[in-house]
Design a protein around this nucleic acid. Structure first.
Lengths: 224, 224
DNA sequence: CGGCGCCTTGAACCAAGTCAAGCTCTGTGG
DNA sequence: CCACAGAGCTTGACTTGGTTCAAGGCGCCG
């Protein structure tokens, strides 16, 4: 809910904002079927190729989904923040593993219950569709990220996070390695690039996890 | 990891294969509402940021969707072959442009008619969801592609195409530049990599558009 | 046969990766 | 309250995979 409300500051009626709100409200109607579960920092929520019995909603904290590639590298698929729904895979198996980035609370809903509800209630089905469409949008944006230069990737990441977290000062829940694995860069390159953006007055780094966007348009220019 | 459609040859009842079939049959029930339109090679089917009035299904030929980045580079989002549905964006606007790669026939269905049908008929809605989920799966695979080495990207591309086209000898509808823009590489790197794979006996290149997979497992090893 | 796309190949260059220190927090125990 | 350890982050020097620039080859169609 937080996410949708924040996004609404910039483009309250954009298609994506609508999709995000619909999506975030997905569990409202079926939340009775769900159980809130606490996960400690680093704890696994579900594993790749496990049968996808549940769909999840972040209540507090932050979650990363990832895959380990054959050369041992880890690729992060997405970050999920409070209000976000994840685990809505196409098939019966999760295509990514999910872990809590920090201590988090996650609402777990049985997939079968959700699917059953969606067959009875068109509203739920519509939300399910909106939810999947939003994920699709994010996956496509992520793919677009990965063909850009290091500066552009980092700038896009910062703008994305700033749009999903409240305020101009972003308190990142994830470490540099997580950012690197999300952006397809090394930790060193992420670090150097943040330093460059700092030198260019585009951002300010009071601490390594806290980032203040000083010049959004400069970042946006790196974005497209 | 293989694409949904490739997998379907080997695992005809995998969840993804089911999704693919559901998706391909999306227009069966509403096809009366659609119009088949011919598009010449290179012709635009719809433009980025245009209002998304239609959803499309490839009847014959091949289609590419793409975006132009701020530095002028073109990024191809996906290739669509006969049976594939595209243009099912989240919002009311297409997020990618679409063009015919070769002379093609495309079934156009009014988005509003499809959405209306989906509200009346749960079956249509389910197919819509399957369709979007399949696109999501593809977008995620595409993102995973883009963090790999040139060899791995080209190998993945060949396996994907081999799985979506009939036979072991793949007749590619797209030129090297299209492949390069899909894989986030240059045309020179794609060319060199194909030559390497040829030297390594993994593939054979009777002509530049015709590619025979000689050693799938070697390609698959580059894949993961 | 000649012209034009399209593709391949070679050589020089560069952005990002790798390897190797060193720095900065933060929490812990003396 | 300080010393210390360890994790996480930054910085520097060197290497490299892929790009860029440039030339040449192939095949198709008039």
């Amino acid at each position: 809910m937080q996410t949708a409300l924040y996004r609404s500051r910039q483009a309250p009626n954009s298609a994506q904002a609508v999709a995000a709100r619909q999506c975030n409200s997905l569990f409202d109607s079926v939340s009775l079927l769900g159980v809130a579960m606490p996960f400690a920092k680093g704890e696994e929520i579900c594993g790749e190729n496990e049968s996808a019995d549940h769909v999840y909603k972040v209540l507090s904290g932050a979650v990363r989904t990832y895959k380990i590639l054959n050369d041992g590298r880890r690729q992060i698929g997405a970050f999920y923040l409070p209000g976000d729904v994840f685990g809505m895979e196409a098939g019966g198996f999760h295509s990514f593993s999910a872990e809590a980035i920090v201590d988090s609370n996650v609402l777990m809903v049985r997939r079968s219950a959700l699917l059953a509800a969606s067959q009875r209630d068109t509203g739920v089905m519509n939300k399910l569709l909106a939810c999947t469409a939003l994920e699709l949008e994010r996956a496509r944006n992520h793919a677009l990220l990965l063909v850009k230069t290091a500066q552009e990737r980092v700038a896009s990441f910062l703008l994305e996070m700033a749009g999903r977290l409240p305020g101009d000062a972003v308190e990142l829940p994830m470490c540099r390695q997580d950012i690197a694995d999300y952006l397809g860069l090394t930790i060193e390159t992420v670090s150097r690039t943040l330093t460059q953006l700092g030198n260019a007055q585009a951002i300010e780094l009071p601490t390594s996890r806290r980032i203040i966007l000083r010049n959004r348009s400069a970042l946006a220019e790196l974005n497209t």
